[in-house]
Design a protein around this nucleic acid. Sequence first.
RNA 1: GCCGGAGUAGCUCAGCCGGUUAGAGCGAGCGUCUCAUAAGCGCUAGGUCGGCGGUUCGAGUCCGCCCUCCGGCACCA
Length: 656
Amino acid sequence: MGSFFLTTAIDYVNSRPHLGTAYEKISADVIARYHRLKGDRTWFLMGNDEHSQNVYKRALEQGKDPLAYCDEMEQVFRDVWGRLDISFDDFIRTTDRRRHFPAVQQMAQACLDRGDIYEGTYEGHYCVGCEEFKPEKDLIDGLCPVHKTRPEWICERNWFFRLSRYQQALLDLYRQQPSFIEPEMRRNEILRFVEGGLDDLSMSRAGQSWGIPLPFDPKSVVYVWFDALINYAAAVGYGWDDAQFREWWPASLHIVGKDITRFHCVIWPAMLMSAGLPLPGQIFGHGWVFFKGERMSKSLGNMVDPLDAARRFGPDPLRLYLTKEVPYGGDGDFTWERFEEKYNADLANNLGNLVNRIAAMTERYRGGRLPAPASGPLTHLAAETTAAYRQAMDRLALHDGVAAAYRLVSGANEFIAETQPWALAKDESQDARLTQVLAEASEAVRIAAVLLSPVMPTASHEIARRMGDSASASWRLDAAASWRTSGDRTVTNSGALWPRLEDKGAIHVSETPAPTPATPSPAAPAPEPVPATAPATAPATAMVEAASAVIPIDDFMKVHLKVARVLEAERVPKSKKLVRLQLDAGEATPRQILAGIAESYEPEALIGRSIVIVANLAPRMMMGMESNGMVLAASPDGGGAIVLDAEPAAPGTRVR
RNA sequence: GCCGGAGUAGCUCAGCCGGUUAGAGCGAGCGUCUCAUAAGCGCUAGGUCGGCGGUUCGAGUCCGCCCUCCGGCACCA
């Protein structure tokens, strides 16, 4: 027994929760409930990440005040979490002025005092022609390799976090505490990443209002990633309630998506070291749950959300599916077909029917009353499966834990088949035997319910009630999962818990083979931090989304699009994606462009085609070759590029 | 291209330090009981353990090469 502080990633509020985010919360909730069951003092934190420019823009697009928009989204999230039975103890928002603001400001100040935050500059060789900073290594004799001109030395003011200082300390941490990062595969990735050296990170943004002002530079706000991570400490008192903070910090476990393990395994511990705070016990990077394509609903044209499973059947079947069918740490897949299959097999046929047959027989043969059972074969099985369950749950092998509980359920069904209580009931000399059989089976099922309670809280409590245990609210694993050899019980027969789903495909419309499964991405500090050494490499996602803002036509006209015919095309050696194209763009000489389309096109197949290019893009060096422009191509999520076709327009034709 | 992980019955996966006829769950087929939600229980499923070669008395389990898939990095703005 001890104290257990568990967190999940805080979520971006620019879209509703989906299966992916739900999966993360459900798995974390199972862990939280398991620890409460063990008797640990448990604190389960969730929250929303709101200081992102995307959120700000989304709000303005909808004509809303950003904060009001976030308030609305909080309700949307809380509503979904409520329907999934997520038992969080606390919910924090990064716009929380009472808790989060002071925490972020205190941590920024602490890092500054430690000498780890410095007013830096994007110092670098800036090539005006390229409009970007050039790393020292790319310069040839101090000149830009593209323009053969001397780049300017430019300084752009900004605040930086001295991440580079923590490389060795982090490596020591990973070595001394191997379980700091799980699963192992993630640890290897992080290890190699850190071994490769760390760059300092820009941690402020100037000239923005949506964010938390730096205490030592109120004109700048804290950059989102720095801001977001601090929520874990902020929630329990950092910066505003020292006593509470000391009580709960450090976190025992951060549950995060595998895409943001780096923030949590590298940057976050470095920040904490800098601020002089203890480090969390473990960071677990879970996998994705994909949603095999659902056909559009005919009437609405909407995707049938897997979360509807919770709406229609209650949260338990979905929770069981996600916990039992997906090995925790790996990726999984949700399909309605499989969901239906598992629902019938695990719930209707196996567990639900078991509860029903025991209750029905007890009612019929014993009027619902049973004494405590003596030890029997199921006693041993219960002890065995409980031990396996604990062992699995303690190492976060949630799927193995559920499997152990289900071995007990199956064992009870086998036991009934062997002992044949209906036959015993016909023989008066077997009276005592029948009583023992029914009591033994009901006790085994009661214990199975205890083990399953973190996964299926509602159903488990109902099963326990039917098996005569109404004290499920105060269960403690040790006592609750022990075989009870004293005390009578009243067994209640209340009908089917999970009616069988009869018609195949009844619960969903129809399924199509989906070439591009929806990729859930539990949000968190998403925009890549800007490495100080290469400021021109801006956060990719942020930039792409920022581009969705409306622009005047004049801006568009600045982009010079035209038709070009492919003269030559060949793979760039040693590159996975690049194709080198020689193009006739109606110009005096052929133009060379490098395009990242090698994964979807054989170079030869492009020769002779008329395509669309951006003609006035600044030249750029890639893989040691110059690229003069860009090939326009559609790039579907998860799919290969589709180059735009301009047949039969002549080379040089303007495209608008 | 570099680094890491994976490729085992229709599906999802287990197989630790190499050793008798390679396992589980689901699905499917057959049989059977009748308390139960046409549920339960039992039996069956004959899978080149990705491919080739090697080490060994013996390899799914170790080594090398190759193929495919998935991650991370580089590169694609």
